[in-house]
Design a protein around this nucleic acid. Structure first.
Lengths: 199, 199
DNA sequence: GAACAACATTAAACTACTTCAATAAATCAA
DNA sequence: TTGATTTATTGAAGTAGTTTAATGTTGTTC
């Protein structure tokens, strides 16, 4: 993959979400770096400061943490056309509490903290752009909270399938279980019940 | 309450969270309106566009929605020194899905969508300020998600008490139950178990 | 392509939480 | 002050989800 060829994808993301003037797009693109990571490669680990935010071109990654009982809890999957990063660690440049790792060979456009701060300083329009970006993320997180607070595991799984139909074929099922907030065994049961109903 | 007297509180909030130059503070303050609402007064309702964001000076409010089963689910309590509003509805000026209502007589400094847009237009520094604000909110939401995904009701309640020791005396208990994602009866049981242990 | 590790399924026993129903206590309205 | 309404508690029965353990399946590596 060649960096220049990836510009249309980034442009397309912004056109669909946060339209921005061509020059701003170009500046952002120039500040970003094309990175290829093999599968199961860590982007951030607890204790480290999250140094980049990334737009995923191809591949898939997940954000998770390890709770007090020692279980992995998946907070987020990011695939093509999504951004990934630890907002808290990145923006405050404080040690992260999260793991972020690829689950497939992944191509992404990354931006470092320094480069981003430079963009803010040189082109104030980026304050607005990234403010709108994080408002989008906020709405997303809110939905997720609401769903975990008030829906059954069954329904959350169905919703997950509707929204991310390709993800189950791409990541181990127990990661999905932890995303839904249930045990892998119980997800397995939900699936077999669903399969029976269909037949 | 007199508007001029409320400036120090707003200043104090920003000093502790997002230091900003005095002139910016003054401009924001001038764009805000002191509002007094009686208890049980609605700020936003589903279907309406959320017209304001507010910094609470005194009193308490909650954000909730009604799920498909018809149950109220409390997303957030906001008391003194907190902001409240429906970020999604306010920023996109789309109909809200949420209820926001006061639970006590509440004094707050409100800002309208138009006034906020005006601030962005006239003083670009506000893009940054409100970007940092929402990053703060993001971190908060993330914690809440993580807690609901991975902790027992017992622990979530304990955490709630530690963090908001005065809230239980100020709002009906079943709102707290719905904030924790459990039934009122079960919260009652958690409490009585706790009380027994202490004796 | 054998060997090992990681993952998924199933079932039985268990626990955290819900639902329902009855009662008590607190709050509010007149 | 009274009755009416809202809120909190308790207990019994039920359900959603967990845990443990065994078995089978798929993937990865050398």
């Amino acid at each position: 993959m060649n960096k220049q060829d990836t510009l249309p994808k980034l442009k397309d993301f912004f056109d669909r979400n946060i339209p921005l003037p061509e020059p701003a797009l170009i500046r952002l693109f120039e500040a970003m770096e094309l990175v290829k990571l093999p599968s199961k490669h860590s982007i951030t680990q607890p204790g480290e400061i999250c140094t980049i935010e990334a737009y995923i071109l191809k591949g898939i990654a997940r954000t998770y943490f390890i709770n007090e009982q020692g279980d992995e809890v998946t907070v987020h999957f990011a695939k093509e056309d999504w951004w990934i990063g630890d907002v808290a660690s990145f923006t405050l440049q404080r040690p992260s509490l999260l793991h972020i790792e690829t689950l497939e060979e992944t191509y992404m456009l990354t931006i470092s903290y320094e480069r981003k701060e430079q963009l803010y300083a040189e082109y104030p329009i980026f304050e607005r752009i990234f403010r709108l970006m994080i408002q989008r993320t906020h709405a997303f997180l809110m939905n997720r909270l609401v769903s975990v607070l008030s829906e059954s595991a069954d329904k959350r799984y169905q919703y997950f399938l509707d929204r991310y139909p390709d993800v189950p074929q791409r990541v181990p099922q127990h990661y999905i279980a932890s995303y839904l907030g249930i045990s892998p065994e119980f997800l397995s049961k939900i699936r077999s019940k669903k399969a029976k109903l269909r037949s």
